[in-house]
Amino acid sequence: MNNAWRGNNKGRHQAVLIEYHFNPKEKNSKSVYQLRHSGQKTVLELNLTVERNNYGEFKPNIDFDDFPKGLSDREAMLKLADWLHRLSVVIEDNWVTQ
């Protein structure tokens, strides 16, 4: 495991807050988390951005820029399902027990 990786370490699953901005005048915030899931053969690492406005509305966004190219529709959907499942494991492991 990379020694530079910091944050909640749940074994194979980690979430690290890598960026945070708060605007006190507008009362909105932006948090960027790096989520990491280590499988048996692969490591999935994606950024999750969460924005909140002054009304408390929550807007999450996940960056899928590195999604594999050249897959059939079926392969792409199954890959997406796998990635979303792995991300949900990281999120649950890091926020359920806090």
Score class of each variant (00 low, 15 high):
residue 22 F to R: 10
residue 85 H to Q: 02
residue 97 T to A: 08
residue 51 E to V: 08
residue 85 H to Y: 03
residue 35 L to S: 00
residue 46 L to E: 09
residue 41 K to R: 10
residue 1 M to E: 05
residue 43 V to I: 14
residue 87 L to Q: 02
residue 7 G to N: 00
residue 26 E to Y: 13
residue 50 V to T: 04
residue 68 P to Q: 07
residue 87 L to E: 01
residue 75 E to G: 02
residue 31 S to D: 11
residue 31 S to C: 13
residue 81 A to N: 08
residue 90 V to Y: 00
residue 68 P to L: 02
residue 47 N to I: 10
residue 63 D to P: 04
residue 64 F to S: 13
residue 98 Q to K: 13
residue 73 D to A: 04
residue 20 Y to G: 12
residue 36 R to S: 02
residue 29 S to E: 13
residue 41 K to C: 12
residue 1 M to W: 07
residue 26 E to Q: 13
residue 80 L to D: 04
residue 89 V to Y: 07
residue 89 V to S: 07
residue 57 E to Q: 15
residue 19 E to K: 11
residue 8 N to L: 05
residue 45 E to V: 06
residue 46 L to C: 11
residue 9 N to G: 12
residue 47 N to M: 05
residue 80 L to C: 08
residue 53 N to S: 11
residue 16 V to E: 08
residue 67 F to S: 10
residue 65 D to M: 06
residue 24 P to L: 12
residue 60 P to K: 02
residue 74 R to V: 15
residue 64 F to A: 09
residue 12 R to G: 09
residue 25 K to P: 08
residue 82 D to M: 07
residue 59 K to I: 15
residue 32 V to K: 01
residue 74 R to A: 11
residue 37 H to W: 01
residue 44 L to I: 06
residue 59 K to F: 06
residue 11 G to K: 08
residue 96 V to G: 03
residue 28 N to K: 00
residue 32 V to D: 01
residue 89 V to T: 15
residue 18 I to V: 15
residue 20 Y to Q: 15
residue 25 K to H: 10
residue 47 N to W: 03
residue 49 T to L: 12
residue 16 V to F: 08
residue 89 V to E: 06
residue 46 L to F: 11
residue 85 H to S: 05
residue 34 Q to K: 05
residue 96 V to F: 00
residue 4 A to G: 11
residue 61 N to L: 01
residue 26 E to T: 15
residue 25 K to C: 09
residue 75 E to N: 04
residue 12 R to Y: 12
residue 77 M to V: 10
residue 33 Y to Q: 05
residue 74 R to Y: 14
residue 12 R to C: 10
residue 65 D to K: 14
residue 74 R to I: 15
residue 33 Y to N: 04
residue 23 N to H: 14
residue 30 K to D: 09
residue 91 I to W: 04
residue 9 N to M: 14
residue 72 S to G: 01
residue 88 S to C: 07
residue 44 L to Y: 07
residue 90 V to C: 02
residue 26 E to R: 08
residue 42 T to R: 10
residue 88 S to T: 00
residue 78 L to V: 13
residue 33 Y to T: 03
residue 72 S to K: 03
residue 34 Q to A: 06
residue 37 H to L: 03
residue 86 R to K: 15
residue 79 K to T: 15
residue 7 G to T: 05
residue 35 L to D: 01
residue 19 E to Q: 13
residue 36 R to I: 08
residue 97 T to P: 04
residue 45 E to P: 04
residue 81 A to G: 10
residue 25 K to E: 12
residue 39 G to D: 05
residue 22 F to S: 02
residue 1 M to K: 09
residue 93 D to F: 06
residue 78 L to P: 05
residue 64 F to T: 13
residue 24 P to W: 12
residue 54 N to R: 12
residue 70 G to Q: 02
residue 33 Y to W: 07
residue 32 V to C: 06
residue 95 W to M: 06
residue 19 E to L: 11
